[in-house]
Design a protein around this nucleic acid. Structure first.
Lengths: 124, 124
DNA sequence: CGCGTTTTGACAATCATTTTCGTTTTCGGC
DNA sequence: GCCGAAAACGAAAATGATTGTCAAAACGCG
């Protein structure tokens, strides 16, 4: 059965930015769902395990999730006011990270990149 | 008075990688200090406020700190096995982030970049 | 319709971090 | 050296996100 998981996935997809678990839970309840907080966490974990969504931590240490349009490796440009995220790609960064890692003798190099700013709508 | 703060700073400086607050606290107590956990947190907060140390979150949502050799903007290449961090610079990335943000109309663009890998010592 | 399996959700437990609050220490005068 | 205000301490309680527990409910299936 995956009704609940789908509900979580859908709610997340309808959002344009990163959402916290608590946040999504509130949304779901507001929509009349009788879903429990535990289930929201389980759904989010399952979704991130299967690679359907991205997880990262905000500065408060809260886990935030996002359903991405593409499954390939990419980064985000996030508005620090409204949270809206734009998916971006940076071949430049990819290769720079790989080279830098290699230069120091590191192997299995991975990286995380997040770009923050104020989006046009929020800055006006 | 800043004896305690100095003790925290020093313990942090002696470490080569990112350390968590709990971790540092354990170290200090092990060294015979009667410092309290509260004070460790206060010291770390004060140090990060003054820009003397870097803070970021690990995947567990725990805050980790690091005393950096330079105060200018830079990033880290962190060994995922032993935690050792190398300070790195990436002019390429800096400008890429700025350009990408601007291209989408974002203002006040900042970014976070962390590169992970396995260091030479740990991979052998 | 029963039966074993899976999913759910209320509630308790965890754990890092923060607050609270009374006590101790530091310091600039005197 | 001594005094009082202000800053620093630290123990213990509070907080808040996340996870674990476990019994009840929904499902698939014969």
């Amino acid at each position: 059965m995956s009704t609940r998981r789908d509900a979580v996935r859908q709610t997340l997809s309808e959002s344009s930015g990163f959402r916290s678990a608590q946040d999504l839970y509130a949304d779901l309840r507001a929509d009349g769902s009788k879903i429990g907080l535990t289930t929201v966490y389980r759904a989010l974990q399952a979704l991130s395990d299967s690679g359907e969504i991205d997880v990262l931590r905000n500065d408060d240490g809260e886990a935030v999730y996002r359903a991405c349009g593409t499954e390939s490796h990419h980064h985000h440009l996030v508005c620090r006011v409204c949270g809206t995220a734009v998916e971006i790609e940076g071949p430049t960064v990819e290769s720079w990270a790989a080279e830098t890692g290699a230069k120091h003798g590191f192997t299995d190099v991975t990286h995380t990149v997040e770009v923050f700013g104020t989006c046009p709508r929020c800055s006006s």
